[in-house]
Design a protein around this nucleic acid. Structure first.
Lengths: 264, 264
DNA sequence: TAGTGGTCTAGACCACGTG
DNA sequence: ACGTGGTCTAGACCACTAT
């Protein structure tokens, strides 16, 4: 185990066949070993070798597989856990993160009641149809204009009151076979279904938030008067490799509820 | 340097006089060494031993001061850097974070133009007066009702247009001697002034975001019609020890601009 | 050349969860 | 009792920055 992957350009001996691409010239392309290990682990996650909710091999096992020390594997896993791709559980092992946990759900719908409580909600599906991407949606999903997409429209009810209207676009090539029946049958969060049934896990997202006046069609669905102030939330979600796989436009009624954000 | 602070209850020899409170019984109160070091470093930050922008002692120096290994100090600093209290610069040293950096400012005012560009803004002070805390403000600032507070009101202009109206409350005991003149004279962000002139550094904040209809007084100041949809942002900011030291109510005009949030 | 943070290793021991 | 992640150490070397 005394191999020296650390020495990128060290002793005369040019032995380097360890893990990924070890560069000879240190200056332009230098990637720490643990970053390379991180990449290898991410590959296994993306390929489905370890599925959401499952346990991954122990640190010592991964260390021997990749021919590095446990500390190096540890640092790679540390970063992946910080990015919410893995979850560590002391005494048990390291697990692939999933959108089925309580914790993961609040990450992507941070709507709390005025008293700070996290209320449950139910989803009313309005529509699920296949159509061709507009120029705007195509650009955001990194598709060509008129490529096939799936559009979902739904309503979220908090305490029986219509609170959120969502319009969701997904690349049709990835979400082949997605129908409103399958959506209706699935119990649990949308993102949990996407990762379980389509192998597409949402890693991160960016949101653009504005205050807008409700247009008649939206106002009607949300049971508020036309012109009522709504929170407009435009989200783009990304999966492995920072590939965009969802565009979502949401309208939130924020009377009795608020969008919680932490600056830290 | 072969002291063994790691052994909380190890060999018969009960030598443990290292840094903070090393517990004898491992079960109920166990705090890792690096957490204790982290606490000691935080104390030095809070007490002003190392001021914002300044360099702190090197890792080896801190290791010898605290009688632990460099790796333990490193882990403590790693976490403090992740929490934006410290900034590491390879080859130079580790520095106390400050609100004067570009990066730190966007953390607390995430308003971007529709094209994604970060526009500069100028601040127009409206008011700065001392009054007594309402029950609501007192509760949020952890004060007693009718305790003295400072209220600041100001307008932010983006590209010459009134865009943000802020109402800020600060504990009067901490911000003694704060006047509108001093505010007007200071060049730079508000939080940079607070840390430089009052030794109070904002560490983190929580925001409650809603869409509201502009009331006449607010609408007038923001040059929009009454009833216009505005983003309402209620912020509470915290300093060391998670003590709240600022309440801020903001109204944002989000035509041409949006509030950017990243879910990661 | 010297000093700083950054990486990597090897080994020891601890806390936690499960047999 | 055993395996897992979590902590701590000591030492080596690398990359970056300044002098």
């Amino acid at each position: 185990m005394s191999a020296n992957p650390a020495s990128n350009a060290n002793s005369p001996a040019p032995e380097s066949g360890t893990a990924a691409s070890a560069s000879a010239a240190p200056s332009p392309t230098f990637s720490p070993l643990y970053q390379q290990i991180k990449g290898l682990i991410t590959q296994s996650l993306e390929s489905g070798e370890w599925k959401p909710g499952e346990i991954i091999p122990s640190e010592v096992e991964l260390a021997s597989r990749y021919k590095v020390s446990q500390g190096t594997v540890r640092k790679a896993i540390d970063e992946l856990a910080a990015e919410n791709l893995l979850v560590r559980r002391q005494g048990k092992g390291t697990f692939v993160a999933t959108h089925n946990e309580e914790r993961a759900q609040f990450r992507f719908l941070r709507l709390l009641a005025d008293d700070g409580a996290e209320h449950p909600h139910i989803s009313k599906l309005l529509e699920c149809r296949r159509l061709r991407a507009t120029a705007d949606i195509a650009r955001q999903l990194d598709l060509k204009p008129a490529d096939p997409v799936v559009q979902i429209r739904r309503l979220l009810q908090f305490d029986g009151e219509n609170t959120v209207l969502d319009e969701i676009w997904l690349p049709g090539a990835v979400f082949r076979g997605l129908t409103i029946e399958r959506l209706a049958d699935y119990k649990g969060p949308l993102y949990a279904m996407f990762e379980a049934e389509f192998g597409t896990r949402m890693i991160r997202a960016t949101e653009k938030i504005r205050a807008v006046a409700a247009e008649p069609a939206v106002a009607d669905l949300l049971s508020v008067p036309t012109g009522f102030p709504l929170l407009s939330v435009e989200r783009v979600s990304y999966t492995y490799g920072d590939r965009p796989v969802e565009v979502r436009r949401g309208w939130y009624v924020t009377t009795g509820y608020y969008y919680q954000n932490d600056l830290s």
